[in-house]
Design a protein around this nucleic acid. Structure first.
Lengths: 194, 194
DNA sequence: CTCCAGGTACACTGATCGGTGAAGTTGCTC
DNA sequence: GAGCAACTTCACCGATCAGTGTACCTGGAG
């Protein structure tokens, strides 16, 4: 029975504090660069408790990714519910992007984590793939709603823009998100006509 | 005097072998995850020589990034020289992308490296920033050549697509590069008219 | 009163980390 | 033949790595 991520919603109080500290450290300093001692120190919870709850650093990492995924999706669903126009709904992910990473972003946590994984045996790997598959499917569904002729094709183009905006903010500032949204507007207009 | 990257073109034979082995390992397995012992083992060159030539792991990392930057630019300049039409020249980076990472890519080496750096004091940081600034300026110059009204704006949009394509190939396959190129064609057409 | 889950305190393991010191070998050049 | 640059061999350093063992404390539920 291989190890998988814990359910972020049924965590013990101590485990929560560990996960919150780990989220901050892993994202800001990198996963491999942050040791379990640093996490336990920052959280104020013993390393023994960390291992009693999570079992291994890899599981803690996977849970960190799953928790972040959940939080992102929740924000996205909330913002999506506020928008009615099918064309504007296609652009919601880009608006959420600006809100999520207010200028001082360190890029996509999932892409960053993937960069540090040597192989797909890491319990966090499946979480990352699932997130990306979900996003792509999400764009495809919105493109279909909006009446696109080739929803999958448009979705993949928007995925590229989305990932690129997240990567580019690090080096080009918050303007990258606006540029990506403008580009998204252009290609959706071209795909949908008018 | 702070440490900086070595000139990849004036390396000792042993240093070259070290750098080649390090390039492969750093890109495939992540920088922090790969120790200097693994590099020296894979290169067949002693760890002592590694330190005699590079001085530190950080400098080796910076040189790895600089070398990769040089190789990418060289390929790009060569391909760019083969294309005459100003609009097609704007798309050359995307074609090179497909050629550079033939399907089995692990994303942008610079973005990946940036994800592992805790702060900007790392000698590789400046190399990464320089590469991204160069790419953006490159797109801006090509956009200007093509007669764009707002070359900087178009360039930033293309940068987003470019970075996004590189990130998306990992999870969406080689089709991501084609999608990004198609999107790039659309937004350049929109920016330049008809 | 007892049980038990959640947590603390702290010492400890073997492995690996980045990096060094010292002596020796090879081959080219002045 | 002296000098030197490139490189090897190997032992070694303190620090940190992920992970464990054991004993103890606390509060709520049966």
């Amino acid at each position: 029975m291989k190890a998988t991520a814990l359910d972020p919603e049924t965590l013990t109080p101590g485990a929560r504090r560990i996960l919150d500290a780990a989220s901050d450290l892993f994202y800001r300093r990198g996963i491999t660069a942050v040791g379990v001692d640093a996490v336990s120190d920052a959280s104020g919870v013993t390393k023994r408790t960390l291992y009693d709850r999570f079992g291994s650093k890899d599981v803690l990492v996977a849970t960190y990714l799953l928790d972040r995924d959940r939080r992102w999706r929740e924000l996205f669903e909330r913002r999506l519910a506020e928008v009615g126009d099918p064309r504007d709904r296609l652009l919601v992910p880009f608006r959420v992007l600006g809100e999520w990473s207010g200028g001082n972003s360190r890029g996509c946590a999932f892409i960053n984590a993937l960069a540090e994984m040597a192989d797909d045996a890491h319990p966090g790997y499946d979480v990352i793939i699932a997130e990306k598959v979900w996003l792509r499917g999400c764009f495809a569904a919105l493109a279909h709603e909006a009446g696109a002729e080739h929803p999958d094709s448009l979705a993949l183009q928007l995925v590229c823009l989305h990932e690129g905006a997240l990567a580019a903010v690090r080096v080009a500032g918050a303007g990258a998100v606006d540029a990506a949204e403008a580009a998204a507007r252009t290609i959706t207009a071209a795909a949908l006509g008018g």
